Each structure stands twice: as structure tokens, then as C-alpha cells.
Simulated assay, not measured.
Amino acid sequence: MNARAFLLSKHFATTHFQQGIDWESRPVTRKMWREKRLASYLLFAGLGLWLEKKNEKPDIKKISSDQQYYSFKYAKLNERCNIGHFQLRNLLWATSKNNVYYMYEDSVRQWSPQLCSSREILNVRTANAPQSRIFTISSMACAENILFTGGSKGEFACRRLDDMTAPVHYGITTEHINGISNHIHITESLIGGIKAIVSSNDMKTRFINMDTLAIENTISFPFPVNCSSLCPDKRIMCVVGDATETMIVDSTTGAGIHSVDEHSDFSFACCWSPNGIMFATGNQDKTTRIYDIRYPSHALHVLGGKAGAIRSLQFSNDGRFLVAAEPIDFVHIYDTKLFENSQVIDMFGEITGVGKW
């Protein structure tokens, strides 16, 4: 499935991302096509009833969506990004403003906006890949000079980004039939060392030591895990999955600390603000919910989507903005000061993820 990847850069912008479409030459206007496409997607996703009853959801906050925080200067990718699973949209990362990593077919490629060129970084179907480890990439992450990709049956492949002569390492996290890697978070752990935190459909989150590639810790949950996000202080972790519940647990023992159950469907994304005070959850009920860890029993803000589920969430590095991506057409950028204003990137296409730098 082809998709579009978006890296947000801080420049003032127009509200609509035009994509080079010549609407003057088309038989329909942009507005007409937007309405038709939205109606078709809602029908396909079974959300028509939700749309009809949206005025009955008083908890969704009404905010301004006409701000202009970010813009796109250009997009020069020769390849269209790919999605390995229709629900998983964590396939775009940026380690710097000039190093953007994205999925293309069976490979991860690096795009340089400065040079307007791209190159292959890792391919799971190259000749040096063990036949037993050829897999479909379902999730990826780039951080701490490491690229880590997870597969549809628990497989993984990883390599260092600061030494392209070093080999690609292959492994597996689980043999479980539902071992698809839903989300990967690369970070330094509480006990030191860089870890890849892999969230899987077999109801487990695993901590992989990136020096030894050994699984150091496994935490089990009562639901398939779609996303695990470690708090900046490394002590606690937010976990969401195929449940309406959001769990805050001890990052080393997995012991429950808080639990909140306010969504009406399954969640696929969660993240922490840089100061570790706020965390956000993104759900198939088309809402992003914002919580304060000091008072976590109820959401501070409930932010509504337009077309579908909230699949990707990222706070900006300075914490000023929260970016929430739907599966198609809409990326929301919220001012986190009061969550009263936002910018909506309005375009046409599947979204494979959002990156920040």
C-alpha cells in the first residue's frame, strides 16, 4: 500500500497542503472531493453512525484549527512510502533535519532534504539476509544511532547508523502466532544502556539490549499491546492496546501504577511530553486524550479527529506542540499551552507516520 510520509519543519504555512494538484483542470472542486472522500472513508470504516451522533459527544473540546505553525517547503521523494499493515503507522523517523528514514517496499531508505536524494539503509530481502529472516516490516524506529525494524511474525533486523560497514543483525522476539511488532521505542533505560522496547500482539512488551540483542525484560499485559512509551524519567511507562484501558506501569517490574478507562475503542498510540508531566493517547474512537500524570483519573482535554482513528502521536522536542496523525488526509498540530488552538494539515493520501526534528 502506497502512502505519504510527512516531516514537520518549523515554518509558517498555508492551511491546505496543495500537493501540486491542479484543481482548475478537474471536474470537481477540492471542497467537493473532500466531502466525497470523507463520506466514503467513514462508510468504509463503519463510522457513519459516529459521525451522525458526534454532537452527542459533549466531552470533545471545540478548538480553533486555523493556526499556521508549520509548512512543507518541498517533497522530492522518488519512491512512494509503503504501509505493511493498515493499522500500524510508525514507519517514518527523523534523526536530524537532514536525515529522514522511511519505508519503501522491503527496505528502509534515508532521505536527505538538503541533497534532495535518498539511499537504501536496510533491506530485509537482500542476498545477505538469512532466508529464515525474510519478513514484512510492520514497524520501525530510528534513535541513538540505531535503526530497528520489527516484522509481522516477531522478526527484527537492526543496524547502527554511524557505521554503515557494520553488518545488519537479525533476530526474533517471539514465535507466537500473534507476534507482530506493533510499535518500537528506542531509548536509554532506567538501569542504563540503549534498549529497543518492542510492543507486540502477543500481549507483551519486551526490552531488547542493543549491545547484546538479548531480551532483558518482558512485561505481560491483559491485551495485545499496540504502543508502549517510556516516560522521560525512565521510571514509568504508558501502555495502550486492544482495549479501552490505558495503563501506567513500573518500567522495570510491570507493576500497575494507574489505570484509566475513558476511550470507547482500541488505542494505537501514546506518548509523553518532554517534561514527563503530560501523556497523550490516540484511539480508534477518533479522539486524542490528554492526561496529567499527577491527576491521571480523567482526561484534561479530549480532541476530536476528522476522518478516522488517531494512529500516530508525537510531542515536539520543546513540548510546545502535539502532533496527531489520522490514517488518511489529516495531521493535527495542537498548541499544548491550553489546547485551544491547532493547525490542521489537510491533504489527500494515506499517512504512514509523522516525524519530528
Rank of each mutant, 00 (worst) to 15 (best):
S138I: 00
T149R: 04
E175I: 09
N128Y: 09
R125L: 06
K195G: 00
I177R: 14
S152C: 07
Q114F: 09
S118M: 09
R119T: 10
I146Y: 07
G193T: 13
M164T: 12
N99I: 00
H185N: 14
Q131V: 07
P113N: 08
V124T: 14
T136P: 00
I180G: 09
A141N: 05
S199E: 07
I186T: 01
N209S: 11
V100G: 01
E216T: 12
S229V: 05
I177D: 14
I197P: 00
I219F: 04
V168M: 12
G154A: 04
S107W: 03
M237P: 05
G241P: 12
G151T: 01
N178W: 13
S200C: 14
H183S: 15
T244K: 14
I186M: 05
F135W: 05
A166K: 13
N99A: 15
N217I: 05
C116T: 09
I208W: 09
K234N: 12
R159F: 06
R109M: 13
V100E: 00
N99K: 14
G151F: 03
S189P: 03
W111V: 01
T149M: 07
T244R: 14
I219A: 00
T149A: 14
I121Q: 04
T149V: 15
T244Y: 10
I146A: 05
S112V: 06
G150F: 02
N99C: 10
D211N: 13
S181R: 05
Y104T: 11
Y104W: 12
D163C: 12
S107Q: 11
F156K: 01
I191D: 15
T174W: 09
M140C: 06
L115Q: 13
N217M: 08
T149I: 15
Y170M: 11
E155L: 01
F156C: 02
S132V: 03
F207A: 12
T218E: 14
E120P: 00
I137T: 04
G171Q: 09
F221R: 06
L213D: 02
T126H: 10
G154S: 02
D162Y: 12
G192I: 10
G154N: 03
F223V: 08
S118E: 15
D233F: 03
I219S: 04
G171S: 08
K234G: 06
S118R: 07
T244I: 11
P224S: 10
V198A: 07
D202I: 11
M203L: 10
V124F: 01
S228C: 11
D211G: 05
K195S: 12
S132K: 11
A243S: 15
E245K: 15
S139A: 15
N145T: 06
Q110P: 03
I134L: 11
M203D: 08
T218P: 00
V225T: 13
T218S: 12
I137P: 01
Y101E: 04
S117K: 11
N182F: 06
I137K: 00
C227Y: 05
S132E: 13
A214R: 09
V124G: 03
P232Q: 04
L115N: 12
E245V: 15
V240G: 07
R206W: 02
T244S: 14
I186L: 13
G179C: 10
G179Y: 06
T218Y: 01
I236A: 07
L147D: 02
Y170D: 12
H185K: 00
A141R: 03
T126G: 08
V240Y: 07
T244H: 12
A214L: 10
F135A: 02
G241Q: 10
S138V: 03
R119F: 09
V240I: 10
L190F: 15
R133V: 04
A196H: 04
